[in-house]
């Protein structure tokens, strides 16, 4: 069903607001742990600045785009974080940003699985601030499931 507000959001790039620094954004850290695991592993990574980044910086720009998806997910989650609305499976399924964040964490976790020699199991991810405040903890997600519609999560 067509949604006019979603349309305006899609074409927002045509209406510059130059509001980069209206708010000092919280640094969002993504962590994950396998089913039954105790320790949360950070999925965030830092890279070294490349020589010639002024001309070509695809990897870093892509990581900024992923960061924007995380922030969009937190914005979508905001009414649930403030208690204005409850969070059910349907709510999460409707959030495109949640699907994207889940897919991003899944592929990062896949890389972790390869490095630790495991494959094809359940994992959870969570989003927290650099100060330790936890925003969101997902329910268990299969590390190799291509579809995310059966995933669940809780706003904390």
């Amino acid at each position: 069903m067509f949604n006019f507000n979603a349309f305006l959001n899609l074409i927002r790039v045509l209406f510059p607001r130059w509001s980069f620094f209206d708010q000092v954004e919280t640094v969002v850290i993504v962590e994950a742990k396998p089913q039954g695991g105790q320790a949360w592993v950070s999925l965030s990574s830092e890279s070294k600045p490349a020589v010639g980044a002024l001309l070509y910086n695809a990897e870093t720009n892509l990581s900024h785009a992923y960061e924007n998806i995380l922030r969009e997910f937190l914005r979508d989650l905001q009414p649930h974080l403030t208690g204005e609305a409850s969070l059910a499976q349907d709510d999460l399924d409707r959030m495109i940003s949640f699907r994207q964040v889940t897919e991003w964490t899944r592929q990062r976790f896949e890389a972790f699985e390869v490095s630790s020699g495991r494959s094809g199991f359940l994992f959870q991810f969570r989003l927290k601030s650099s100060e330790g405040e936890i925003f969101f903890v997902s329910h268990e997600i299969h590390s190799q499931t291509p579809r995310v519609s059966d995933s669940l999560g809780d706003a904390r």
Partner: peptide, 9 residues
């Protein structure tokens, strides 16, 4: 805060 958010090490 912005420096903490930098993708660079």
């Amino acid at each position: 805060s912005f420096l903490k958010a930098s993708p660079y090490r």
